[in-house]
Design a protein around this nucleic acid. Sequence first.
DNA 1: GATTTGATACTCGGATAGGACTTGTCCGAGTTGGTGAGG
DNA 2: CCTCACCAACTCGGACAAGTCCTATCCGAGTATCAAATC
Lengths: 156, 156
Amino acid sequence: MRMGQGVEWALHCCLNLAWTGTPVPASRLAALYDLPPAYLNKQLQALVRAGLCESVPGPRGGFRLARPPGEVSLLDVVVALEGPEDAFRCTSILAAGPGGDPGADYPDTCAISLSMRRAELAWRRELAARSLADVSDDVLRHTPGAADRVRDALTA
Amino acid sequence: MRMGQGVEWALHCCLNLAWTGTPVPASRLAALYDLPPAYLNKQLQALVRAGLCESVPGPRGGFRLARPPGEVSLLDVVVALEGPEDAFRCTSILAAGPGGDPGADYPDTCAISLSMRRAELAWRRELAARSLADVSDDVLRHTPGAADRVRDALTA
DNA sequence: GATTTGATACTCGGATAGGACTTGTCCGAGTTGGTGAGG
DNA sequence: CCTCACCAACTCGGACAAGTCCTATCCGAGTATCAAATC
């Protein structure tokens, strides 16, 4: 159960975009952390498809947040890159077992599936309750100059 | 972020082993749900390595639970198959950014890493709080004859 | 000096290879249970 | 009838391929900017 590397990149990039406000090209974001520019571009495209970011082509173009930082949750970013499906997949193997009913809706009735889903709901709830603005507040409380440093590095 | 298919198989098998008590060969467990016998055997080996199951070789052999069902949590099974690492991996990309400190412990200080870890802790807490005995109770409350049917099918 | 026109450089976007991990399969080592002969 | 040795079948266990997803890269379509030429 491994999460794609792009999630970490996208989260940091979204936070940086929240601090700049203006469009920033993927190549400049990649240069900040020594990341593969083209691959990071691919991840940001997924954020655009999910409606989290907007892309501006041409010179002075790049990516910017499509919504205020307080309206973008960490769950939004994770779902945009990893997809909406649950990590645990119930394939209704009980249907083939003794007393199994091929027509039953096992993903919604099997006790194991429900237990796993409950755990993932708790995970999603935590991520949904945390917005980019919340994370930004935490960072600036610990390192007040972080936003200015990033803004200078990205808009130079 | 996809969980291995073996987790579902292992969870159902552990529940069935809790109902039988006696060793059951992997081939018989696989026949219950039309699963690949050798591959299921592989998953059960992981449970043995984790100390959740015990294996008995030779005729009348198979796998049995190493501990009482109340002492085996769903988290134990998931960790045995998926590993103890978190799904989200902090690679300390901040160290390469502006104001980054190569010696800092970013996995334990970065606000993004901490937020992701908090969510995974909530997930783990839910899984750790649910034992095989709890799941068994839920199943038998809804389908009282399930344990007997499985026992008959596996020990026939 | 203001305007138009063209070229230019820069951006995203999707299509295209390489690598890692999950999935699936096979055969050998070890052990138990039964079976037959012998006492 | 009891004991013992042998054989055979069954089990796990690890080593060996195939498929799928993540990772990484490249090149083309589109656009704003800048410069030069013209009015």
